[in-house]
Design a protein around this nucleic acid. Sequence first.
DNA 1: GTTGAGCGTT
Length: 159
Amino acid sequence: PISRRRRHIGNRSNPNPNNCLGVFGLSLYTTERELREVFSRYGPLAGINVVYDQRTGRSRGFAFVYFENVEDSKEAKERANGMELDGRRIRVDYSITKRPHTPTPGIYMGRPTTVGSSHYNDYYSDRYDDRDYSYRRRSPSPYYRRYRSRSRSYTPRRY
DNA sequence: GTTGAGCGTT
């Protein structure tokens, strides 16, 4: 049985149309502004996100472009794929991930800023997705299970 | 302006 999420985003080699385009093979010097100049030709953009290396701060050579309308996204993918930008032939595909998600009501699902239940957040942050988010209880993450079993191995202290 | 497959939390 195929999950609803998988059906929605398609697979890696053949992603289904959606508002977000992944742009790959970029020059390390291509900026968000350049991308905006190119992609806004096809329709109003909701945002652009160049992915940078966390340590060096340099571009990792790919980016994500969000369109307001899927139709524009489709158009842009067709037209911009294979286009040359800053001396690089870029590849444009529908995004299969949606890391920067819309703000969630209630609890924060991202990586915790302090030590805490990271075994929980590390597990679920990768599985989180806007469209199948729910407050439904799920089975404990493997990290949590390991954490639990480790805890149990200690002899509880009594005072 | 290393390079060059890649799907991300600055």
